Simulated assay, not measured.
Amino acid sequence: MAADFSPIPGTARMTDVAKAPVPFDLSTLKQNWRQRILAMRAAGVMPIIDIESNLSENLDVQRFARQMDAEGVALIAFSGIAAGRGWSDAARYAVAADPWRYIPTGDGGLPPDWKNNPMDFARITKERTVSDGYPLMGEYEFRHYPSPDQIQRGNTQRDEDLPIDSPAGHQLFQFSAESGIPFEIHLEIEDQYLAPLEKMLKQYPKAKVIWCHLAQMRYQSRNTVYGPDYVRKLIDQYPNLYFDLFSGPPDHIYPGSGEYPGKYWDRTTGRLLPEWAKLIAEQPWRFMTALDLNPFIMNAFSRKVGMQRAVLASLPEPVREIVAYKAAWKLLFNEDF
């Protein structure tokens, strides 16, 4: 039913369509998105909003629209990749080509732009977020180890390390606090990074922060603090802190450490460990599904969706809809679905 309502884009190349005008017409777009979600629900499908993915203008939007429909993915927060250009406008192309499936999201803080000049990129982010009307800023990499697909491609030099309490970090936190627009951070879960993050959350209590990848720990020996009880404490103390639930499958091993990074999995059952499921069920409005897509791993789309559905299946039925799409909708648009 959602596929019937949401037409497949008329072109595979999104750049064959003129960029969507800005500021984005979120009122009209939200009507499209709401009808798409309702159509999925009416068909007995649990709609998923992917709150965090970094995609490029080279995405085949026709093929991907069919994949989204087949997997019951209602919406993807489409964050572009500046790739040395300062800003991509990829989300404007995506929304123009397919206004039913993509939430326009600002370019994330990815290399090389963010790494080479974080202050300038933070400034551009603020300017474009305001002028174009993005409801969400992308994922900013403060501490980020090489991803598994990068290691497999031989790109082992990428090792991002920008203090979250750096001047660029202060710019983002302050802007989010003043504008009410959420932004996403990638910060590896290690003891040494927790205190600076808490300092920023305390200094900017109105900043809306999505900490990406709950319970992804690539080097367990570097963490002695983080766990369900610590996350519960953070949620209690910082009312504007949220988490995305992306993780690789339970049997995934991070090639950099040889460890299983997805610490919330019961690798025997393929479901969440009870203590993590209990945490999410207690505070479902603070957790959101995510696929963490990038141009190099699009073939893993179905597997990634399957992992998020395994997360949802581990939760009590009354909270599944909240985590799957309602929490994201409320955070981005300040309204209940």
Score class of each variant (00 low, 15 high):
6 S>R: 10
9 P>C: 11
17 V>I: 12
18 A>G: 03
20 A>H: 11
20 A>E: 11
23 P>C: 04
28 T>G: 06
29 L>N: 03
30 K>L: 12
42 A>H: 12
45 V>R: 10
45 V>Q: 12
48 I>D: 00
55 L>A: 07
62 Q>L: 03
67 Q>T: 15
69 D>S: 09
71 E>M: 13
72 G>F: 01
72 G>H: 01
74 A>N: 05
76 I>V: 14
76 I>E: 04
82 A>H: 01
87 W>G: 06
96 A>C: 08
96 A>G: 09
105 T>G: 09
112 P>V: 11
114 W>P: 00
119 M>Y: 05
125 T>K: 08
126 K>F: 02
127 E>F: 06
131 S>T: 13
140 Y>V: 09
141 E>C: 09
141 E>T: 05
143 R>S: 05
146 P>Q: 04
149 D>W: 14
156 T>A: 08
156 T>D: 07
156 T>V: 12
159 D>F: 09
168 A>L: 03
173 F>D: 00
174 Q>A: 15
178 E>T: 06
178 E>V: 02
179 S>H: 04
181 I>K: 03
181 I>T: 15
186 H>R: 02
198 E>P: 07
199 K>T: 11
201 L>P: 00
205 P>G: 07
208 K>W: 05
209 V>P: 04
212 C>W: 00
215 A>C: 08
217 M>T: 10
226 Y>A: 14
227 G>Y: 06
229 D>K: 13
235 I>N: 05
243 F>C: 10
247 S>H: 13
248 G>V: 10
249 P>D: 15
252 H>V: 12
253 I>C: 06
256 G>V: 09
260 Y>I: 13
260 Y>H: 15
269 T>C: 11
270 G>E: 09
272 L>H: 05
293 L>S: 02
295 P>F: 13
299 N>P: 00
300 A>Q: 15
301 F>L: 14
303 R>P: 00
313 A>N: 12
315 L>I: 10
316 P>W: 03
322 I>F: 04
323 V>I: 07
330 K>L: 06
331 L>V: 06
332 L>K: 04
334 N>H: 13
335 E>Q: 14
335 E>H: 07
